[in-house]
Measured scan of single mutants.
Amino acid sequence: TTVHIGNVTYHFDNPEEAVKWAKEMAEKLGLRIEIHGDTIRVE
Rank of each mutant, 00 (worst) to 15 (best):
V19H: 11
K23C: 13
G30W: 03
D13S: 11
F12C: 03
E27A: 07
T1R: 06
F12S: 00
D13Q: 10
E34A: 14
N14M: 05
F12M: 01
G37L: 05
E27C: 07
E34S: 15
V42E: 02
I5K: 01
D38L: 07
G6P: 01
E16L: 10
M25F: 07
F12E: 00
K28N: 09
D13H: 08
E34Y: 14
M25R: 03
Y10A: 04
L29I: 06
G30H: 10
L29C: 07
T9N: 06
V3K: 01
H36Y: 13
L29G: 06
Y10L: 11
I35T: 04
D38C: 05
L29M: 10
V8M: 14
V8F: 14
A22M: 03
E17M: 09
H11A: 05
D13G: 06
W21Q: 01
H36L: 13
A26S: 06
T1W: 13
T1S: 08
L29A: 08
H4K: 11
I40S: 02
L29V: 04
P15M: 15
A26M: 04
E16F: 10
T39G: 05
W21G: 00
L31R: 06
D38N: 15
E43K: 14
T39E: 11
W21Y: 06
D38R: 12
I33E: 02
I5Y: 06
K20T: 08
A18H: 00
I5G: 01
P15R: 15
P15H: 15
G30R: 05
I33Y: 10
K23D: 04
E16Y: 11
G6N: 11
A22L: 04
L31G: 15
T9S: 12
L31T: 12
E17V: 09
A22Y: 02
E16A: 12
T2F: 08
V8W: 13
E17P: 03
K23N: 09
K23F: 09
A26D: 01
H4V: 14
E16N: 09
G6L: 12
E24M: 14
I40G: 02
H4T: 12
L29S: 06
T9V: 14
K20W: 06
T1G: 05
R32H: 15
L31K: 07
E43N: 12
V3T: 01
G37Q: 06
R32Q: 15
V19K: 09
T9W: 09
P15E: 10
H36D: 14
V42W: 02
D38G: 10
A26E: 04
M25V: 12
G30V: 03
D38P: 07
E16S: 10
I5T: 01
N7A: 10
E27Q: 06
E34C: 14
I33S: 02
D38H: 12
E34H: 15
K23R: 11
I40Q: 01
A22T: 02
F12A: 01
K20D: 06
F12Y: 03
F12P: 00
A18G: 06
T1D: 02
